[in-house]
Design a protein around this nucleic acid. Sequence first.
RNA 1: UCCUCAUUAGCUCAGUUGGUUAGAGCACCUGACUGUUAAUCAGGGGGUCCUAGGUUCAAGUCCUAGAUGAGGAGCCA
Length: 465
Amino acid sequence: MTLKSRSKIVDLLKGGVVGTEVTAKGWVRTRRGNKNVAFIALNDGSTIHNIQVVADVTTFGDDFLKDVNTGACIMVVGQLVESPGAQQPVEIQAKNIEIYGKADAATYPLQKKGHSLEFLREIAHLRPRTNTFGAVLRIRHAMAYAIHKFYNDKGFFYLHTPIVTASDAEGAGAMFRVTTLDIENPPRSEDGKVNFTEDFFGKETNLTVSGQLEGELGALALSEIYTFGPTFRAENSNTPRHLAEFWMIEPEMAFYDIEDNMDLAEEFLKYLTSYALEHCKDDLEFLNKMWDKELIERLNFVASNKFVRLTYTEAVDILEKADQKWEFPVFWGADLQSEHERYLVEKHFKKPVILTNYPKDIKAFYMKQNDDGKTVRAMDVLFPKIGEIIGGSQREENLEALTTRMAEMNIPQDEMWWYIDTRKFGSAPHSGFGLGFERLLLFVTGMSNIRDVIPFPRTPNNCEF
RNA sequence: UCCUCAUUAGCUCAGUUGGUUAGAGCACCUGACUGUUAAUCAGGGGGUCCUAGGUUCAAGUCCUAGAUGAGGAGCCA
């Protein structure tokens, strides 16, 4: 028998054959019992549920069982039997128990009773062993898989856009510099400035803030692509919705206009929501019970109801007529604030909202300009509790319109020659959007802080683990 | 970065108007219990009340500054 031969607890609970000898391995959640019998709740992360191991105290001895405590890692060999207890179908009658790793009860930080999410963040190396983070991490995996499945089934190609980039033209946020220069004593040119031609890449480089521009290059060759990778923003954002390092999905499609783009975004979000409801039932039920009593109801609602679509101008109209005091004034041309977005989603429509056709001055240079000369074909998908979960647009494919806009917004065109080239040679109408993976997970898991849906969060002043 | 709030046992939290020796549940230790379900029951040990100043006869409690955390805002996904 090799070390890895064992039954996963999820399989034992669902399809284990009663009467057979089985081997289970995992971490002890609790041990309880009396002087005759000990009950060990064992979890191996394959499911939210534990399997109950029953150990005869006279067989194993008090001293031995003392070390089979919360946190210890053990192997159990024994017969799978029907459980007389009401809370589990089967249990293991232990014949042999081996302790792989003890956990000193006096110093092991995790206990069987509730911990605050804040405390668990401080022990992010151990929090995957809790019910909540086990559930979140399994759902995170399921969503990542579902994203690839969704696009693969549609014939999209997964494009790996670069993580190190020399373009900071998109202006999506402050960037992390990538350099091998000696930060204490960098080479300088005659004018005293740091001489980046001596840096590793011979120019200034940063971590990517978006794969979109390179994604467009792929779409204008493969027709439909998506990216799914890490993204970095050096913004000093301290909120439950922002991370310095997060994952983003960016589909980019040739021959899609803004309507096609919205259709895809809505179908995508509904697919993922339905996938979670179908494949992560046990974990969602746990999170629903533990953290968010309306979670499953909300997921069902989003999966089965049409999103509201309206233009920015219509939204401003609704907000101006709303019987509501605003901290920030509403007028045409102003960027919508959180309070405005929340009002539309949570109070006025009570369902997800897609806003389109924003004033061009509050949106990026690459967005397709409308004939009115005032608005661009941007779209933001707004979700309850989370706010903006998707931001996207139809892209400006007309060379002259694009370069004129770049000049107006002081975007350096020489650095962007390759991007502009796509509008010179075989340009095509195309669209795309970005979905923040962790924001999706906030919605799907019902967690309220983004630091609790990524294994090791990176935020200002925090890069532990 | 701005505003607000919080910080008391390993964890979760009480602590009255500033007043004797700072409490509870869980965890830990000792014991009881013939199948438990965050097992239960009895007993025990465990405190830099975030840090540094200050006010006061007296500070966990009031004041000032700082640290850390959280919520809201901005930036955005």
